[in-house]
Computed example of a mutant assay.
Amino acid sequence: MNKDNLSKISNKKALLIVSVGTSCKKTNEKNLDSIEKAITDNWSNVIVRRAFTSRTSISKAENKDAAHTTAEALSKLMAEDYKEIIIQPIQVIEGLEFEKIICSAMDFKGRFKKISIGRPLLSSRLDFIELIAALDNEYGLKDGKHTIFIGHGSAHRGNQAYRDLKVIFNNEGFEDVHIETLKRNSGFDSLLMNLKEKKIDDVRLLPLMISAGKHILEDIYGSSDESLKSVLESNGFSVEGSVKGLGEIDGIIKIFIRHVKEAMDGIEKIS
């Protein structure tokens, strides 16, 4: 996190990076910190702050003085007389957490000269195409092995993004790529049956989440019988994979940087 040096900031502009957060220090360093550093490096003349949508992440943060909700962070920036605010969500889809950020920002409409909000990771066709390219570059997805990406999932309408991603993957020639989620994974059993019918023995299991937190380490790759890796193995599949969060992949970080630039250019201005 860069230090406030108000004498060097003439336009009193601040960039607020908002994520669900995680209580795992190593995960923060590998994912959220790496995204934040890349953004800071691109806009070294802008103060960068952090906020969380999860109260659990805030309560477990090492630096309690720097752990705020979106509203708390905006209140602090207002008290420090910042005029222009760019909020960049570090989230995969336009779901419930994104709506929370928008609601918090709307409460401050008119209190700043300008508030702009960047989009989550998957918000346009260009985002989908660039994400697919980044994942293919990272994992080599056209090697003939069936790959199952696991997103968090949501009851929110934004969950449609995962279904759209599956379609675009297939349209781009990645017919062996599958998209499932933890929260709405009713298709997982059907996928297992389909793979068995095709006599597939080896699969690649990968997270489609920003940070390697509890969901990745326990729900996907945990040692319990209920983890997705265990379920696959108990069904006779040989499973390879990675616990790497999306925040560790350069191509993904570049998408967020583009979203920040679009917000700064006023594409998503709310006040």
Rank of each mutant, 00 (worst) to 15 (best):
V243N: 10
A155W: 11
L165V: 05
L6H: 10
T70A: 05
V243R: 13
G222N: 05
E218L: 03
G187I: 02
M209S: 04
N137V: 00
G266R: 11
D41Q: 15
E197V: 07
V92I: 13
K244S: 09
R157M: 06
P207G: 05
A38Q: 14
N45A: 05
A51E: 01
I168S: 04
E80A: 13
F112K: 02
V48Y: 00
D265M: 10
T181H: 01
I253F: 03
S238I: 13
A61I: 05
K8S: 07
L16Q: 04
K76G: 00
I87Q: 02
G241H: 04
G187R: 04
M264H: 09
K30D: 10
C103D: 14
L126G: 01
T69C: 02
P207Q: 04
I150K: 03
L135R: 02
R49S: 06
K244N: 09
I9R: 10
D225H: 14
I216L: 00
V260E: 06
Y221H: 07
L208E: 02
F149R: 07
L141N: 01
M78S: 12
R125K: 12
K229D: 01
I87D: 01
Q160E: 07
V18I: 14
G173H: 08
K166G: 06
E97K: 00
I270Q: 03
E175W: 13
V260A: 10
K196E: 12
T181S: 06
L16S: 02
K183S: 11
S54T: 15
E138C: 10
K37I: 11
T56L: 14
H178K: 14
I210V: 15
S211M: 10
N170C: 11
T53F: 09
D81M: 00
K142C: 12
K183C: 06
V177F: 05
I58N: 05
Y221S: 02
I58L: 05
N45M: 03
G144R: 06
G144I: 10
L191M: 11
D107C: 09
F169R: 04
S190A: 12
D127H: 12
A66S: 10
Y82F: 14
L135S: 07
W43R: 11
F256H: 03
D219W: 00
S211P: 00
M264R: 08
A79I: 11
G222R: 06
D219V: 00
H215Y: 01
K13L: 11
S224N: 13
K37D: 14
S104L: 00
K269Q: 13
K142A: 11
S10I: 06
S59G: 00
A161H: 06
